[in-house]
Simulated assay, not measured.
Amino acid sequence: MSQLPKQPAEGPVPTSADVARLAGVSRATVSYVLNNNPTVRISESTRRRVREAASELGYVPHAAARSLRAGHTRTVLMPTGDHPAGPLHHRFLHELESGLRRLDYTVVQHGSLGLDADEAARAWAELRPVAVIAPGGVALTPQGIAVLRRSGAKAVITLGPQPVDGAHALVMDQREVGSCATGHLLQRGRRRIGVVMPEEPGLAPFAEPRLSGARRVAADVGALIEPLPLRYDEESAGALAARWRTLGLDAVFAYNDAYAMLLMRALQDAGIEIPAETAVVGADDLLIGRLLRPRLSSVRMELAASQPLADLVDRLVRHPGGVPERHDLLRARAIPRESS
């Protein structure tokens, strides 16, 4: 009978003692260097020898052991919500992850769909994160926040349209998006404005504040705001376009560029001239919207933090226990083009 070839035996797992012997330093020095301990002064040449020795041996610190000593990890947990991530969210994640990596944190995303608020908090706490940044689609309660703090989380932070009592808040106030889009349409002389309300799950926490912002601006001049439920499919857009003239609207803020492009195509197919009969504005300022004819007017959203986001999280971790802070991150401005 043929036999499988023998596999070479694996060597022992390298330890910090092995690194210390190869680098000619103490185990404590290895720990200080590889854990980036800022409280101990170690020369750059020593740091280099330790890192080279660790690399040669293939040694990495044991995260679980380090967590037991510290009572928490260097993990920043970011639970996933049930809403599609837009361009601004991707920019936020990229900036935050790269900044936290520079500060020796690890960002971990956690699938939390199907868990209620307190179940989610317990699941996050099991991982002993040093900080949690929870999206707006995942509810937090005072009990859940307390569970996270008892598990060693130094900072519990929410990211969403509204702050949550007891947690630090990174607020992206979606009312600013609705206000900006509607203000632009009002400046163009439009007074009967539809606002698309997506029927897809997970978008209500964003769509409803945008509608509220539109209403706030329109009320100042007595303009009409008409909510327009819309699914993201051609059939729903075609049905809305077919009855458009019965609505008597002269403009639409279509939630975002994707819905704006869907509805604009349906309106054009129904013979509605844009912008002569109806002005259209989206949000996100996607490149593809500039390739349409007419080119799509949009609302550009940008991060407006007063300091790098990673530095903010690091400060909240290093100085826990203070009064919950609120930081408004969203800045919106209209980008006029041919569709309005």
Rank of each mutant, 00 (worst) to 15 (best):
R49L: 06
L4Y: 04
S31P: 03
S26R: 01
N37D: 15
K6H: 06
Q7F: 01
V13D: 03
N36W: 09
S26C: 03
T29E: 03
V13W: 03
P12C: 04
L22Q: 12
P12K: 12
V13L: 13
N36F: 12
A9T: 13
A28P: 00
P5V: 11
S2I: 15
G11Y: 00
S2K: 14
A23Y: 01
K6P: 00
Q7T: 15
K6V: 13
A28M: 14
T46N: 02
V19M: 09
A9D: 01
V30K: 01
A9E: 06
A17L: 13
L34C: 06
V30G: 05
S2M: 13
S31Q: 01
R27W: 03
Y32P: 00
V30E: 02
S26P: 04
L34E: 01
V30C: 03
V25L: 02
S31N: 04
A9Q: 07
K6D: 02
N37I: 13
T15W: 05
T39S: 11
L4W: 05
R49M: 05
N37Q: 12
V25A: 04
E10S: 15
P5D: 08
A23Q: 01
A9H: 02
V19A: 10
T39W: 06
R27A: 09
L4A: 11
L34K: 05
N36P: 00
I42V: 15
P5C: 02
S43H: 10
V19E: 08
G11S: 10
A9P: 00
N36E: 13
R27L: 07
G24D: 05
T29C: 11
R47G: 14
R21E: 12
V40T: 09
S45L: 12
K6S: 09
Q3K: 11
Q7G: 07
V40C: 01
E10T: 15
L22A: 12
P14I: 13
T29P: 03
L22N: 02
G24V: 11
T29V: 15
M1C: 04
I42L: 13
R47S: 08
A17G: 08
S16I: 12
V13H: 06
N35R: 14
T39Y: 10
V13S: 08
S31T: 15
A28L: 13
T15C: 05
R48Y: 00
P12W: 02
S43E: 06
A9W: 00
P8F: 00
Q3L: 15
D18C: 07
S26V: 08
S16A: 13
V25P: 02
A9Y: 00
P38S: 09
L34V: 12
A20T: 10
V40I: 15
G11T: 12
A28V: 14
R47Y: 01
T39E: 08
V19N: 07
S45C: 02
R41Q: 07
R21N: 02
L22S: 04
A28S: 14
E44F: 04
P14Y: 11
T46G: 06
E10G: 13
E10H: 09
R41D: 01
T15N: 03
A20D: 08
T29H: 04
E44W: 03
R27P: 05
R41K: 11
R47L: 01
A28E: 06
V40P: 00
V40A: 04
T15R: 10
N35Y: 09
N37G: 06
